[in-house]
Design a protein around this nucleic acid. Structure first.
Lengths: 347, 347
DNA sequence: AAACCAAACGCAACCGATTGTAATATTTAT
DNA sequence: ATAAATATTACAATCGGTTGCGTTTGGTTT
């Protein structure tokens, strides 16, 4: 089709008999260019159909105005909300967001960190893949002064920024909520490996039981290999087939909670009368299911915004050679009490 | 922290006493470099901790290996699945995906097209904002030989690639399904403006009624301003308050369908016995709600993959100066009959 | 009117890799 | 052994802006 249609600052410079440096500065209101000249430059730029080439501009600073986001998948409600929050914040600051999905694979994650680095993104926001235990592949960012924020699924030992909720206390709150409703035998579904967010939620659950004089029973703690409806149904069956079945379930994810709830309904077990259930995340499905699923709020969009803001702040400070201390940002969660755990009122 | 840690091909060249051009070619197995040299180059590159700078590499071709995705929001299940499909396909081909959200605003969409262009993305995939009627802002891509794919929400008149479902026939199928179940007074919820996907679905609905000897009644066609539960509840109320209420509803989106279903339940109207409902999209909520919502499948991930493949194919052909004809790709939909419309079996 | 100063603009190196073409080295053919 | 052919590698321009520093211009001060 058309060739060489591209208008560059050289073209503008030629037309106005000015140096390219003047054009470049004029275009961005540099103080050393007179207002008259600036106006003239902008006008002709407009007329000639000039559009800036971010690629070329970034080459000098060796960084694109881009934030890389590396997450397991975009299709989970929590993660798509996270992205949304990141994107909104980034967009306001003139940054672009690139998305990469690890599909919970360690190997893919390793490759994608390389891609992100090769693309010279300005900063990286990551929620770890399920499989990931070793996080050495992220050193490339911290070694090169690229701000790195871990969000939600964070590594245990990595000196960088973290944006999280307090999973221990959230697990504690969820469990306590069930206890408050009168549950005595509260089961828990867990997932992942040691030090994961699920691990902490489980610890919160255990602590809550202990604090309220309830025994911690191995048979009431079951583990899923994947967060899927099928897996959750399997373990729900296991739990409800117990000769002494639980009267409450704390599921650390709404998919797990919904699945348990559906299975209980199928079995004719009354929720919440015979079995109270609380999930986690406040996914859309938690409000759709009948009875509605009590859950723990998980401020996805806010976490995304907070993460992006940290990146932006870091980059700003970095320009002035300021240092910003690596820190953990905690966001709040709360119990969203709904029908699936509402024992008292019904009595 | 560390400064100038960056290893470039210059550093490798110096170390090996070779020219940068040799390094550049060696790194990508160019045939004119001997195997020995290639090995040597790769080895030292590895040792020196070299990592390619895509930014610099892209400057010459004036294009990043990046696909821009411009959509209303990432949080709708359909759209996050779309992204997922795009990302998977892009990743395999070594392309990166940048996401931008228009939030259904025409103005934002216009700005974001500029951003995408300024970033010199290789191709663009877009699902239009609700507000968008004029699509002149996309000409910048076609004018500059950047492949542009419109997906799902596409403009009526724009010579480029389209990836869609046949909304007319999907609307027809949905309506016919309700007719087949014995519905005589089928209502329809519509949205958006003329020529939108909703417009076509409505036309399919109308045609189905006509073909089966049913009257098209104005009072049974209601319109929402936004696709939200609240809006949908309002119009559902309107419909069910009719002195002669409908016995079926075709909602062109699962949020609308679920909302109608919930409202009917609240009113004590039996679904599907007294009111059959079918939605659209096959969102996760359609399976969670009780009774489960019949719906129309909408192959989001496949549409994403198809869109990305078109971009990749175009770019490949473009290198060889081949032309690819602009075309519309239709993907299939089908009726997913579930409980909310299962009148016959229950009788 | 000489000296001085700030404002406005130009020069040219630079960012890191790519690539057409020229130059040199190595093999093969005669 | 010498010319011809082929395999390797080097040179240098290029992509489009950015930026430190030097130069020019015009006005002020004494």
């Amino acid at each position: 089709m058309k060739e060489n249609t591209e208008v560059t600052i050289y073209d503008i410079a030629k037309k106005l008999n000015l140096a390219t440096s003047t054009i470049s500065r004029g275009l961005k209101d540099h103080h050393s260019i007179s207002k008259k000249t600036i106006q003239k430059i902008k006008k002709t730029a407009e007329e000639m159909g000039y559009s800036p080439n971010n690629l070329a501009a970034s080459l000098r600073g060796n960084k694109m105005k881009t934030i890389g986001v590396l997450i397991p998948t975009v299709t989970q409600p929590f993660l798509s909300s996270l992205i949304s929050g990141i994107e909104i914040t980034a967009q306001k600051a003139g940054y672009t967001v690139v998305i990469m999905q690890s599909h919970d694979s360690y190997k893919e994650e390793v490759n994608l960190t390389k891609s992100l680095y090769n693309n010279r993104v300005s900063g990286v926001i990551c929620s770890l893949a399920m499989e990931t235990k070793d996080t050495a592949h992220f050193k490339i960012f911290t070694d090169n002064n690229t701000p790195l924020v871990f969000v939600d699924r964070v590594p245990k030992h990595f000196e960088t920024f973290h944006v999280v909720i307090d999973n221990f206390s959230a697990g504690y709150k969820a469990t306590k909520h069930l206890i408050d409703q009168g549950c005595k035998r509260i089961a828990h579904i867990t997932a992942g490996y040691e030090y994961s967010i699920f691990y902490e939620r489980k610890n919160g659950y255990i602590q809550a039981l202990k604090d309220h004089g309830l025994p911690v029973l191995e048979e009431l703690i079951v583990k899923v290999d994947e967060i899927t409806y099928d897996e959750a149904e399997k373990v729900s069956k296991k739990l409800l087939n117990l000769k002494n079945p639980p009267d409450g379930i704390f599921a650390p994810g709404d998919i797990l909670g919904v699945s348990a709830l559906q299975f209980a309904k199928k079995r004719g077990i009354k929720v919440p009368e015979d079995l109270a259930i609380i999930g986690f995340n406040n996914d859309p499905i938690s409000l759709i299911i009948d009875p509605s699923l009590s859950t723990i709020s998980h401020p996805a969009s806010k976490m995304g915004q907070a993460s992006a803001e940290i990146i932006l702040k870091y980059l700003k400070a970095s320009k002035k050679n300021d240092e910003i201390e690596k820190q953990i940002t905690f966001l709040n969660t709360e119990v969203l009490a709904r029908e699936s755990s509402n024992k008292k009122q019904i009595k």
